[in-house]
């Protein structure tokens, strides 16, 4: 697990509405036990070049209902393995949202994110302040900060570490 940072700077990858779990990782790859192997197929259908070209701390920008469909935790996991620093979407499907937090991947909700941010733009996300800065234009976009309980899980480095830190025995 990567060290968690509350300030994330990277390039934007802009996707559309309803990027479902099969667009993130197709069911046919789920029996690959090695996450690194599986990650080569991330976002293969909507952005075949993604897995090759994504860089550490890049930021996915999406429309409504990102991650709808299957409960597969592999979806956010392979994105973190490829280095994705944050996902900003208009809205998230509930299981994906929960899974992302559990694997230590920050997810934020931004209205009309795909209209305000252009593919390839350099961005900085300030999780604590609830702001995204577009480097070129200097524009600031506000968002509702991640709820405190979820931030605690992210700071711990994900749900497993959070569990170990809070274990009663």
């Amino acid at each position: 697990m990567r060290a968690f940072s509350e300030i994330i700077t990277g390039r934007a990858w802009v996707l559309g509405d309803n990027i479902d779990t099969d667009q993130i990782i197709q069911g046919q790859h789920l029996n690959l036990l090695d996450y690194e192997e599986m990650a080569k197929h991330a976002l293969e259908i909507p952005r075949p070049e993604f897995a090759q070209n994504v860089k550490e701390n890049d930021i996915i920008i999406a429309g409504r209902n990102f991650g709808g469909g299957s409960s597969r935790e592999e979806a956010p996991m392979i994105l973190t393995i490829l280095g994705v620093g944050c996902i900003a979407a208009e809205s998230f499907a509930r299981i994906f949202y929960r899974n992302a937090i559990n694997v230590g991947l920050p997810v934020i909700e931004i209205k009309n994110a795909t209209e305000r941010i252009v593919d390839g733009q350099q961005l900085t996300v300030f999780l604590k302040d609830g702001q995204v800065k577009i480097t070129d234009t200097g524009e600031l976009i506000k968002f509702m900060p991640i709820p405190a309980f979820m931030m605690d899980i992210l700071r711990a480095g994900g749900a497993i570490q959070y569990y170990k830190n809070h274990r009663v025995n």
């Binding site: 409960s71 935790e73 929960r98 559990n102």
Partner: peptide
């Protein structure tokens, strides 16, 4: 309701 691997592991434990 459906949960994924990490949440299921926590419930199993």
């Amino acid at each position: 309701t459906g949960l994924a691997a990490t949440d299921s592991a926590i419930v199993l434990a």
